[in-house]
C-alpha cells in the first residue's frame, strides 16, 4: 500500500467546545486494516476526537481525510454517503430503545439495501448470532444486560459490513472474560470484514492485545505526544508520560535512550 492514501488521515486537527480548546495540532494516519487505539488520561479529549471522526462534531480547525477525500473542509463531500461506510459502537451502546434488537440491526439494512423483509430478518439473525446473541431477536434493549447491549450494538454497527469500525471504550463496565471475548471478536471482525478499527480505550490489556497503531493524547499540553505501535511506545517512546501511562505508572524517570 505504498502510494495509495492512508485510510484515515488526520491533519492539523483542533478540537474545542466554544472557547475551551481540548486538543490542538493533531496529525496522524491510520492505515487500512489497522487496529488503531486512541488513548490518554481521562478527560483528554478521546471521545471528542472520535466524535469528529464520525461526523458528529465539527472541528475548530483542520480536517479528516478518508481515502484521501476531505470530510470536513470540502463542500462537495457527501458526508452522509461517507458515513454509511462506518460502523459505530457508542460507549453506552445507544441502541434505539423503542425497537427490538432485531429491529435495531434491521434499520440500516432496510434503509440502505434492497433486501426483502425475510432476507433482512435472516441477516439480522446472522449478525446477532455473530456476537453471541441468537435467540434475543425480540428482546428490547432494556431487557438485556449491559454487556449484551454492547454486543447488540456491535451487531448493529456491523450490519452493513462497514469499512471502518469505531468503538468508544468497548470494554468499559465489562468483566475481564467478557471484555477479552469482545477483544477477540473485534480482531475476528477486522480480519473477516477486512475493516479498519479505531478504538478509544484505556484498558492496557486491550491496548496491547489488539492495537497495532495508536495515538496518545495529553491533557496537560493539549496535544498528541506520540503515535505508533503501542508496544514500541511502551518500550521505546522518547516521552516519559507515554511510557509511564503504558507501563501503568511504573516507568523510570531516566530516559532509556
Amino acid at each position: 500500500m505504498s502510494d495509495a492514501p492512508a485510510h484515515i488521515t488526520v491533519r492539523n486537527l483542533t478540537l474545542a467546545y466554544g472557547e475551551f480548546v481540548v486538543q490542538r495540532d493533531l496529525d496522524f494516519t491510520v492505515d487500512r486494516g489497522d487496529v488503531f487505539i486512541i488513548m490518554g488520561g481521562s478527560g483528554c479529549g478521546k471521545s471528542s476526537l472520535l466524535k469528529v471522526l464520525i461526523g458528529l462534531k465539527e472541528p475548530a480547525a483542520g480536517d479528516v481525510l478518508f481515502n484521501g477525500q476531505s470530510f470536513w473542509q470540502d463542500p462537495e463531500t457527501d458526508r452522509e454517503a461517507m458515513l454509511r461506510k462506518f460502523g459505530v459502537l457508542f460507549q453506552s451502546g445507544a441502541l434505539w430503545s423503542s425497537k427490538t434488537l432485531a429491529e435495531n440491526v434491521a434499520l440500516p439494512l432496510a434503509t440502505y439495501t434492497e433486501l426483502t423483509p425475510p432476507e433482512i430478518e435472516e441477516v439480522c439473525s446472522l449478525k446477532l448470532a455473530l456476537v453471541g446473541l441468537s435467540g434475543f431477536e425480540k428482546y428490547y434493549p432494556s431487557e438485556i444486560s449491559g454487556g449484551m447491549r454492547k454486543r447488540a450494538a456491535l451487531a448493529r454497527a456491523i450490519a452493513l459490513d462497514p469499512e471502518i469500525l469505531f468503538f468508544d471504550e468497548p470494554s468499559a463496565g465489562l468483566d475481564p472474560i467478557t471484555s477479552k471475548r469482545l477483544d477477540d471478536l473485534i480482531l475476528e471482525l477486522r480480519d473477516s470484514l477486512g475493516a479498519t478499527v479505531v478504538i478509544v480505550t484505556h484498558e492496557l490489556a486491550s491496548i496491547f492485545a489488539v492495537g497495532n497503531n495508536s495515538v496518545f493524547l495529553d491533557p496537560v499540553t493539549k496535544t498528541m505526544l506520540a503515535t505508533g505501535n503501542p508496544q514500541e511506545l511502551r518500550d521505546r517512546s522518547a516521552d516519559f508520560e507515554v511510557r509511564n501511562f503504558l507501563q501503568r505508572g511504573a516507568a523510570a524517570t531516566i530516559s532509556d535512550g
Binding site: 464520525i54 461526523g55 458526508r79 454509511r84 457508542f90 445507544a94 430503545s97 434499520l107 434503509t111
Partner: peptide, 16 residues
C-alpha cells in the same frame, strides 16, 4: 430521551 441516550447520534452516524 433519544437525544439523551445518544440514539439520535446513532442515527446520524448511519447517515440517516
Amino acid at each position: 430521551t433519544m437525544k439523551v441516550n445518544e440514539e439520535i447520534d446513532a442515527l446520524r452516524t448511519l447517515g440517516i
